[in-house]
Nucleic acid binder design. Structure first.
Lengths: 330, 330
DNA sequence: GCGGGTTTTGTAATCGATTACATTTTCCTC
DNA sequence: GAGGAAAATGTAATCGATTACAAAACCCGC
């Protein structure tokens, strides 16, 4: 392929200056209608497409928002990204996603890579409990919104859900079915989501007058295998729980998988309540309740926050939204 | 925030020229070790980070690969993206994802947006049966690799799976359980995946001496709701199938959901075989077989193809990889 | 301490689009 | 048709990093 056409080429082709070309193509009302059409025609003829590197070098804006997610294959993150994308598209912004692969170091690298004139702002789903790199990014002036998790207090806008309340409700609902021995299949307590859901679990038990039983509380990475493993340990206890609160969708799958291996009489009585309502949640045998997160609302709020930052509509004080969950019986 | 530091600032700070700064920061062996350290120190002191717009304007390369997926919330696409990302990261490339929202028009827009000096090449999962815009992108010189689906024959490299064989095997396996009345819960035949899987279904029946029954064959968008609807229609037939081949993970969820609503005696005998092995597939009640796609291998192959194109290691003739699936009994 | 090679560093052009400022053209009104 | 405001266009600087080419510094043996 030959060299791509530039404004210069169009200027020559249309017999005008590069200034006029640039203005015509960007819809500047100052160029005469006739000239504008001629320029557009020339651009079409040459198959012109703008060089964004050059443009953003000059304008310092890209109209793109970057999203950093810990993992591309985790449903919840991508559903959130999907909702966010719709909102941003409606405002004329494009969205780019990159994965931090659950690593704070990689996250920091992306936090540096993205602003280097690739995106105007960043929406991140923090990968770990680390927060210093977020603080540094903000100090550098990067418009930043955290979603789902908010480690430390890096002074960024944040869009969160009421994890504590959601978990509390779910555990209460299990108790409402008559269960007293309720296990906790949890996540790494350094993650705010995992910690808050654990607090909800504890609070619910306290409210029900059930003393906490440390043996019933398991923690691990919020993945399928860990869910399986934690359920395995809980089932091995001499006086095992019969109902479980499960911290998210992945652990839910793992825990369910493990339960399937139990003898029928034990399975019969098993009941789960899990965070995250997924399309397949109602199909999982033991799932009695799911805590639905307001993903659409989260996307909408995050889009609003980041656009406000980018377009400078809002001052230094960080905003936090804490959205309610909804308990869904299955 | 004040203006970000530039090579100029570093040059002043370190008492050298911008050329030396650039060379030092890019590890050019021609700069003296002592000078290089001094430059790096100055850069650190000023909190320098390169302006990629400026760099790629000059170098015409970004070491980034763009991925266009029809939908961010579809597991299979994101798992594929995840595997691809790992491969690219290993080669020092970053990956950016954007969603075409199942629209050829949006796909075309991204196909134009991405190369404008944002990425060096594109890996796309085509959204529709359209292929002209892919052809045009290639004509423009954009390094492009198609995955999963390959509409038309746009002359791009493609990484595909043996959809026909996978579906054939799955239907045979259902027949092996004794079923003769096997329904097809399918997808839009304009998509190569849907079409090839349908061919596999037909071929399997033919091989088994079972005459095709058009009433048993349903087509629609490959989504949960459509899966539910198609299953609904199939169950309403006077002499309904008792086993079903389901075209992908989403329709699988929908179809299963619908089956749950059937009276126990009918559910008892129901059996499904579905394309896509997901973590939760073994947990779905009626799923007897899943066709696993070699996602890791697809990512690896796609990464190899696109990097070969970007780095000009391969000529004009497009390459196609057709990878085998694996039947998994549940 | 001088010629010739090797390192190391510097100067200035360049990538392509945007835009401040300057200039020309158009269009009224009197 | 002169004068002046408004509209349209042009000139050239600019964004920040890279790099071709030029120049300087250093090292060596004799």
């Amino acid at each position: 392929m030959s060299r791509a056409a530039t404004v210069r080429d169009i200027a020559r082709e249309a017999g005008v200056s590069t200034a006029t070309v640039s203005r015509a193509l960007n819809g500047d009302p100052r160029v005469h209608g006739t000239t504008a059409s001629a320029v557009r025609a020339a651009a079409d003829r040459l198959g012109y497409s703008v060089n964004r590197a050059a443009r953003s070098l000059k304008t310092r804006s890209t109209r793109m928002v970057g999203v950093i997610a810990p993992d591309l294959a985790t449903d919840f993150f991508m559903i959130l990204a999907d909702r966010l994308e719709r909102e941003l598209a409606a405002e004329g912004y494009d969205m780019l996603i990159a994965s931090s692969r659950e690593s704070a170091a990689e996250e920091e690298r992306l936090l540096g890579l993205f602003p280097e004139h690739l995106v105007d702002g960043i929406v991140a789903i923090p990968a770990t409990g680390e927060s210093d790199h977020f603080r540094r990014a903000i100090a550098r002036g990067t418009p930043l919104v955290l979603t789902d998790r908010a480690p430390g207090n890096p002074g960024a806008d944040a869009v969160l859900v009421d994890n504590e309340g959601g978990a509390r409700e779910a555990v209460r609902a299990l108790a409402g079915l008559g269960y007293r021995r309720i296990g906790f299949v949890g996540g790494d307590l350094r993650l705010t989501t995992a910690r808050e859901r654990f607090e909800g679990y504890r609070t619910a038990l306290a409210g029900l007058g059930i003393p906490p039983e440390p043996e019933f509380e398991r923690f691990g990475p919020m993945h399928i295998d860990a869910g399986y493993g934690m359920m395995d340990e809980l089932l091995a206890l001499p006086n095992a729980p019969e109902a479980w609160f499960v911290v998210n969708a992945d652990t839910h799958v793992g825990a369910t998988n493990r339960l399937y291996k139990e003898p029928p009489e034990r399975r019969e009585r098993a009941a789960l309540a899990a965070f995250d309502e997924m399309p397949w949640s109602p199909l999982l045998r033991f799932c009695r309740f799911a805590v639905e997160q307001p993903v659409g609302e989260m996307g909408r709020t995050a889009a609003g926050f980041i656009l406000d930052r980018i377009e400078g509509r809002v001052g230094g004080r960080p905003r936090t939204a804490r959205l309610p969950t909804r308990l869904i019986p299955h």
